[in-house]
Structures are given as C-alpha cells and as structure tokens.
Write a protein that binds this DNA or RNA. Structure first.
Lengths: 158, 158
DNA sequence: AATATACCCGAGTAAAAAAGTCGGGTTTAA
DNA sequence: TTAAACCCGACTTTTTTACTCGGGTATATT
C-alpha cells in the first residue's frame, strides 16, 4: 500500500516549484538537482503534470516550468491523481467507478475499502501546496534558530 | 496506492472465518470456494496468517482453520500487516522505522505521508472483524429471504 | 493398519507494473 | 547561428505480484 516514486517525486517537484513560485520559471535541471531526482525521469513526470494542467512550461533558452496556479489552489490529491491515476485502495472503490464486481452488493470488505479511501482523500484533498510551504517555512525557521526540526519549538527568544 | 490481492483475499478469508466462528474449523477448500479464491494461493495466505498468530489450523481429517481469537479482538490492520507488511504510504514513514533518508529532517513531504499513514491506520486499526460481521448482518437483513449468489447463509442462527 | 482428508511448505514461473534510460526533435533568447 | 531548454515516444531493466506445483505430514475413521 505504497505511493510509487512517481507520486513521491511528483509531489517533491511540485513543492519545489511552489517554494520558488514568485521567481520565474525554474529549469528541469534545477528541480532535479535540488530534489535529487534523475533528470530524464523527472522530465517524464513534468510532462505528465503539464498535460494534467498543473504546471506550464516555457520553451527555449530562458525557459523552465512553473505552477499553472498559485500554491493555495493546488491540492496534493490532484498531483497524485495526475501521476498515479485514481486514488483508491482497491479497483472496486475508484471514485466514479462503475465496474463493480459481481459480489459488490453483498461485499462487506468493499465498505471498509470505501472508508479507507475516504480517509485518504480527506488528507490528500484538504492539503494544498501552500500548506506544505508554510510547514517548510516553520522548519527552516526552527533550523535557523538552532532548533532541530523534530523538536517542539518553532521560535526562540532573542 | 492499492492494497494487493493478498490484502484483499486475506481480509475476505478472515471475514469468512469470522462469520463461521461459532462452528468448528472451516476447511481451506470451503473458504476458497465461498470467496472465489484459488485454493493453492489461499493456502499460502492462510499459512502466513497462521504464522502471524491470527488463525489456528487443525490438521487431519476433520481439520481446517479457525480464528485464533474472537472476531472482536482481531483488527483489520493486523490482517493487512500480516500479509502485506507494514502499513505506510512510503518507506520513510513505516511505524517504528529507523532508516530515515538523509533528507528526512527538512523533508516536508514526509510530514504529509505521516498524516496520510495515520489516517489510514485510524480506519484499519479501529475496525475489527466483528464490526464487519455486524455490517454483513445488516446487509443480509435487508436482503433476507433474497437471492445469494452462492446460496450462502450467514450464521447458524435459527 | 490402511486410507482418505486436509494442512504444510518451499521452489518455481509467468505476467504485470514500476523505474529509469535514450536518442532525436522543436522552440527561442541571445 | 548557437546553445539552452523543453518535448516525446520507444526501449530496457528490475522488482513485485500473483499464482502454480509437487511432494510431505498429521489424524479421524474404518
């Protein structure tokens, strides 16, 4: 029950673009380097994300990628769906899925998978890139103040 | 982000055993037939579940499998863990997992995966086989005297 | 004791998915 | 004109999944 590297890399790349949203387009090369992802593989993913309408690309010399919308308006769920397909623990509970198996009407497990799916969606579709940026902000603020990221304190006096 | 057939079959098999918990051990053959699972594949799974302490087996002529504990005391999460390993959307957030990657301290995505994991655990570890049996009861009550695909009966209740 | 039933188990295999690579093409600022 | 970047489909390798198989062991019954 793992999210693939496509999902993980996709999120990291989008997050990287979100953190530099104010600046112009960011090159594939730079994103790949900062996130330690193979360039050729990331190129695939960014292509997918572009076709899904989540990023826009600028070709040519000063080109690169940027988010198609501000970070507040991009949900993690969208990213995952773009690179991994529908979010569902089983085939039989894909959102808007018609192809119920013959046992669906009396299938108790299916109810469980639905609940699981919904709890996953609750997290993924309620979190935006801006939310994650804010958390990154807190982390780096803590690090700047000499507090290790998993420590409780966010700021320090003086 | 799918649960494998091991997880799905494992749950269905355990649910089958739960529904017949009162009666003696149930044969592999019968479970496989009622849940439409290949016998040899199910045998593997039940072996795993036995080694995990979730079912006990009785060998020989009148043998079969039964739950190691009453349905109230078996959580779905235990079953999934037994047949699929730790429940976590990424390697970096496995419960009790030490091997954090080098980027863990400043990794924002990781926080998200933790939240996702926790929401999954909330569902899987709060649901017992007894809960599912109760839901099955409600379902069959609605369809009482109705048609069952396998002509199955739920309990030995008169 | 023989037998049939039923669990036990490791090894093996085929198919699918995941992960990542490659080479050649197009756009565009300088 | 050139070099920086994106574009894209096809290809390969690796890993995981989903099974199958064949022979072994325990045991109730006859």
């Amino acid at each position: 029950m793992r999210v693939s590297t496509r999902g993980q890399y996709g999120l990291r790349a989008m997050l990287e673009l979100a953190l530099h949203y104010a600046e112009g387009p960011m090159t594939l090369r730079r994103v790949a380097a900062r996130q330690a992802i193979s360039e050729s593989y990331l190129e695939q993913l960014l292509g997918t994300l572009r076709r899904a309408g989540l990023v826009v690309s600028v070709r040519g010399v000063q080109g690169g990628y940027r988010l198609a919308r501000p970070p507040e308006e991009i949900r993690v769920g969208e990213i995952i769906r773009a690179v991994e397909g529908p979010i569902a623990p089983t085939e039989c509970v894909v959102e808007g899925g018609e192809p119920e198996c013959w046992r669906a009407p009396h299938c108790v497990s299916r109810l469980l998978w639905e609940k699981l799916r919904d709890s996953m969606l609750a997290v993924l579709d309620s979190t935006t890139l801006a939310d994650l940026c804010a958390e990154a902000e807190v982390m780096t603020a803590g690090a700047r103040a000499g507090v290790f990221p998993h420590g409780g304190r966010t700021t320090s006096e003086g």
